[in-house]
Simulated assay, not measured.
Amino acid sequence: MAEPSFLTAVRESYDTVAAAYVERVPPPAAMDPLSRAMLAGLAELVRTAGPGLVADLGCGPGRVTVHLAELGVSAFGVDLSPNMIELARHAHPNLRFTVGSMTALEMEDDELGGILAWYSTHHTPPQWLPAVFAEFHRTLAPGGYLLWGDYVGDERLQPTRGYGQPVSYESYLLPLNRMVDLLEQAGLVVTAKLEQEPGGRANRPRACLLARKPEAP
Score class of each variant (00 low, 15 high):
L157K: 09
P159Y: 01
R206K: 10
A186H: 02
L95Y: 11
V99A: 10
A9G: 02
S171H: 14
P175C: 04
G41P: 03
V78T: 12
V22Y: 05
V167H: 03
G144N: 10
P33Y: 01
A30Y: 09
P125L: 06
R11P: 04
Y172W: 15
P126K: 04
G187N: 00
L188I: 02
G41H: 13
P175M: 08
M38W: 14
A75L: 09
V152N: 06
P130T: 05
M84L: 04
L129G: 08
W148V: 07
G113C: 00
V152W: 08
S35R: 06
D154Y: 08
A207Y: 12
E44G: 06
L209R: 09
P4M: 05
D56A: 05
G200I: 07
T98G: 11
L210G: 08
G187T: 00
A202R: 14
E106T: 14
Y21Q: 10
N203G: 14
R138H: 01
H123I: 01
H137L: 13
V17K: 01
R201E: 12
L105T: 02
N94W: 15
T8P: 02
E23G: 03
R47Q: 10
T139C: 15
P82I: 04
P51I: 11
P82R: 00
P166R: 11
L68V: 03
K213C: 00
G114F: 10
A202Q: 14
P28W: 01
P28G: 03
S120G: 10
F136G: 06
G113Y: 00
A141W: 01
E108G: 08
P166H: 11
V132W: 06
Q165N: 10
V66K: 00
K193C: 12
T124C: 13
A211M: 11
Y145K: 08
P93I: 01
